[in-house]
Design a binder for these strands. Structure first.
Lengths: 326, 326
DNA sequence: TCCTAGGTCTTGAACGATCAAATTCTGATA
DNA sequence: TATCAGAATTTGATCGTTCAAGACCTAGGA
């Protein structure tokens, strides 16, 4: 059994005091270069690593960030969070933080979890996903001065915190422009019922790029409801020759409807999920790794106390992945 | 600013010593009932929560479990890990543990991460996924007496640790029996090149249920390679009328091939991914939440020192989700 | 030569919990 | 009533780090 290496072991070996070792680690500039080098050598020679628990007890900071992992609600879109999580873990690691997971049944449950994580684990910060209208979580955290960033803008609420989001409207706009460039004249939109921030933004981008209102239909997310809404749209007079969809599920439904009716319709989905990759669906891809990195950057700013007085907002452009369907 | 509630605050309020409070929390049976109640009241009244960092410093245990989050390699199968992670977080939470994430580029990188997580964060245990032939990770952990469980059996290696796995052979066997019951006489198999433990087990289950070797083909995982392998198989003499596939990607390819050739072929995939749900593909579903729970159970046993001397192995039966394609 | 300021390093205390050992209480027995 | 074992509770030390304050050293100015 190897003896545990603590800051005292390092100090002894380098012939300095504990505090000097601590200074080399945390505030190297107050230590004379020669001493610093000697200590650094001792650290690597012994393979010393800071004990987080001890540091945390003294400083009250854990270098831990928490994120909620949601069940894949609509199975088809679950992988978005998955990729975001991977990016977050990577970026956090580089910044010296670790990611802790938690689950929660609803907002109230999630808030109770914040409370427990904060008092038991001294969590440094939270990353919230799936923000929505009237989200109680942000105000709870803000009231307690807990650092946090949301992935998704604060729909409807005043922007009192930093956030990162993907420019949904730009995504559908790019998809629409692509279809227009291919020669399509009637480009339709298949989206969710209005009211959700994300869904409205996606419709807005299509409308903006088109310069007018083309044929559109609404359906709750899902392949079947998408198929029936698309079928209805395709059977109208002046049916669209191309459809921009608010999600890959809806796009899949549209694809099915077009095939049934024997129509050749160009279709673009949204999120570039596994399904899109698998069946060759052209889709709008969110830069999830980039979004995760920016979230960590913003948090690091907050935690280092070098955040600007007004919250920072980051809006990332998505990209269009062109495949067989458009 | 509310004053911090520590064990001393609780002790004062309940009129006992710090240690008694600690005993109520950790070894309640050594405290007289009346005292215990009084302390418990004080705890809830004050909203006291154990400070993990302080506890960890003294006990050397963090109540933290680490899992690697992998990038969705083959996009189509990524959600398997996602669902497993969710289950793990849930189950760990119930058992009083939290899940920490990390990423790693390869096995060596992962081992370096173990080292760092163990010395810096005092991690209690690891859950390994994607076990493979000649896995260096398990021996590294075993050599250091670090508790761990693998989700996936130790292919080829001696079974010196506990593991949880899904009975892959039983899954394809069930799929095959289902097809036989539907009246199919020639049931084919589309799988991965032999050599991978999982893939071989899936082929074995099909063979066992069939009682003989039917038509089969091999392809690396992916829709396109699956499609071409399936096409070849369907163009042979005595082509199969139904195909059991080793993955949903391959199944998707088979579906494409059948459509192109205008054949009505029953198809079953494996993993019940989002794609299967979206397009109505019959597929074998792994009980991921259950697997996660069992992993946590095994770890809890190890950590509480009440593990049997021989490692426990758990083999869970998958279930067949019947949809439109078979 | 003495003093001072600034840079460098060290010392003792503290964070909040648990361990190990010591102390007090309780009730049964002689 | 005195004694004693066992139960119940308390006390002091400790985990590894950082904070706050103090000590030491060196160089420059009076």
């Amino acid at each position: 059994m190897v003896e545990k290496v603590t800051i005292a072991t390092v100090a002894r070996r380098a012939g300095v005091s504990r505090q000097t070792v601590s200074n080399v680690i945390n505030t190297p500039d107050v230590v004379r270069e020669e001493t610093r080098e000697r200590v650094r050598e001792a650290i690597t020679a012994l393979g010393y690593r800071v004990n987080q628990a001890a540091r945390q007890m003294r400083t009250g900071r854990s270098r831990l960030i928490a994120v909620r992992i949601e069940p894949a609600r609509d199975g088809i879109n679950g992988s978005v969070l998955d990729r975001f999580l991977h990016g977050l873990t990577d970026a956090a690691g580089l910044a010296g933080y670790r990611v802790m997971l938690y689950t929660a049944a609803d907002d109230a449950d999630e808030i109770a979890t914040y409370d427990e994580l904060l008092s038991a684990y001294d969590l440094d910060a939270f990353v919230l996903t799936s923000t929505h209208h009237g989200d109680p979580r942000t105000s709870w955290l803000a009231a307690r001065d807990v650092p946090f960033v949301t992935f998704g803008r604060p729909w409807g609420a005043p922007e009192t915190h930093s956030w990162v989001d993907v420019d949904n409207a730009a995504g559908t706009a790019a998809a629409t422009e692509h279809l227009l460039a291919l020669g399509h004249r009637r480009v339709g939109f298949l989206g969710w019922p209005s009211g959700s921030g994300v869904g409205d933004a996606r419709r807005e981008g299509w409308h903006r790029a088109l310069g007018s209102w083309g044929p559109s239909a609404e359906a709750t997310d899902g392949v079947d409801s998408g198929a029936s809404a698309a079928r209805a749209m395709l059977q109208r007079e002046e049916a669209p020759t191309a459809i921009v969809c608010a999600s890959d599920s809806l796009a899949l439904g549209a694809l099915q409807a077009a095939r049934e009716l024997g129509r050749d319709v160009a279709i673009v989905g949204f999120d570039d999920t596994a399904v899109a990759q698998a069946i060759g669906l052209t889709s709008v891809s969110q830069p999830l790794a980039e979004a995760a990195t920016r979230c960590v950057d913003l948090l690091a700013e907050l935690l280092d106390g070098r955040a600007p007085s007004t919250p920072t907002t980051v809006l990332l452009p998505p990209s269009l992945v062109v495949r067989k369907t458009a």
